[in-house]
Nucleic acid binder design. Structure first.
Lengths: 225, 225
DNA sequence: CCAAAAGTGTTGACTGTACACCCATGT
DNA sequence: ACATGGGTGTACAGTCAACACTTTTGG
């Protein structure tokens, strides 16, 4: 390894963030409309070049706050994409992150921006800028996987939620239906949630019990879900 | 996202590679002795600044060939480390990779180098340069995980191997003993290997049947191991 | 013939899966 | 009263974990 790093090639470094949420029982990703070339007016992930004196993680947090007005959410590094053809301007390295946000925590400030951030269902991703579709597909796989061996789903749900919301969230992420009784049994065994005593209001049917997560810290499950 | 990337801050970009192999039924990592500051004469992962016109993956492949004389092995991107304190020279981003190599494929060329590459047991990692110990610990976890839901172990074993070698490899990576009969049963069910008809020679005991992997392509297993 | 590792099955506990009906509420 | 989603249990199949002795060879 050579020591004087000033001599060496330094490509441009960007971060892009896949921000997932659950809305209407669908898994959605936050996209913005690009205001400039390349890919002007294509949908793209929020992201950008890193600033001086910030790490890629800092950068991700900054963008998250800036584009969706959120902090204190689940964020983890995803993968570093650096295919030579991914950016028409040349070799641009993107360190990607993914974030999980309960829908009710998001406060857009549309007035200040022209990029019109918008949540788009993962089932309707067409014509994205750069390799952003690949990034989202990769992120979803990671999320699916993580759902099965951690309690990470807590980071997508509001404070109180019905069992049905929980199950629908799993179904939206995994992309398949689950059996109601088996889901309930298995999930209760995990001991991650407790009944709040509260009930859901305002539905036309029998009110559902509301549950809450006992811990909001990421933990690995002993058994695969 | 701003468009003229020339204006933006470009940190130094390096790659470091965790090269695992199994030797004497132990999981080992290839380390080199750093010839220069910082961390002069500390053990470190092979790595270096990326060259002009190569991607981080290209760089990993180049280092792999250069430092251990190997190609056509299993390589995958691990994680991007960019903690500000990881390098005393300043902010240096390292995109790390991990590689899996059967011991018999490695041909060091010690005569040309002063870095004395050497395989070190993962149980004996002391005083490594930079954050390289963290990187190795992270890589090992990834490998443990991968071992359980893919056939990746093929990339650590020689063409023909006994069931015992296979089991010892699992044990070395996972760090725990496995039951001989259950291991055999489970692994055979997976249908990944077949008996070659050959027998192990030169041992003092009953000769073991030699097996070989049917496919050398990475595949996910239906069931967790 | 002895030492050393190879090879081989069964059982009981647990886990996963399939499946259908009554309940509580708002309209 | 009815439409709607909420809530509940059982039985069967498959998988996992524990466990000990015989076989084959080289020395």
């Amino acid at each position: 390894m050579k020591e004087n790093n000033k001599k060496y090639w330094s490509p441009s470094l960007t971060t892009d963030i896949v921000i997932f949420t659950i809305e209407n029982d669908e898994l959605k990703v936050l996209l913005i409309k690009r205001p400039d070339d390349p890919f002007k007016s294509y949908w793209a992930l929020p992201g950008g070049f890193i600033h001086e004196n910030e790490t890629t993680h800092d950068s991700a947090i900054r963008i998250l706050k800036d584009k969706a007005g959120i902090n204190e959410v689940y964020v983890e590094q995803l993968y570093t994409f650096d295919n030579k053809k991914r950016d028409p301007r040349g070799y641009v390295v993107s360190v990607t992150y993914f974030a999980l946000v309960p829908k009710d925590k998001i406060k857009f400030d549309f007035t200040e921006r022209t990029q019109s951030p918008q949540f788009v269902s993962v089932k309707k991703l067409h014509n994205l800028a750069f390799d952003h579709k690949d990034i989202i597909v990769y992120a979803r796989k990671r999320l699916q996987f993580k759902l099965e061996y951690t309690n990470v789903v807590y980071s997508l749900l509001p404070k109180n939620f019905s069992f049905n919301k929980l199950q629908k969230s799993y179904e939206a992420i995994l992309g398949r239906k689950l059996d109601k009784r088996n889901f309930r049994k298995k999930f209760l065994q995990l001991g991650l949630i407790r009944s709040t005593g509260k009930m859901q209001r305002g539905t036309r049917q029998r009110p559902a019990k509301l549950y809450t997560f006992i811990s909001h810290r990421l933990t690995e499950l002993k058994k695969f879900f």
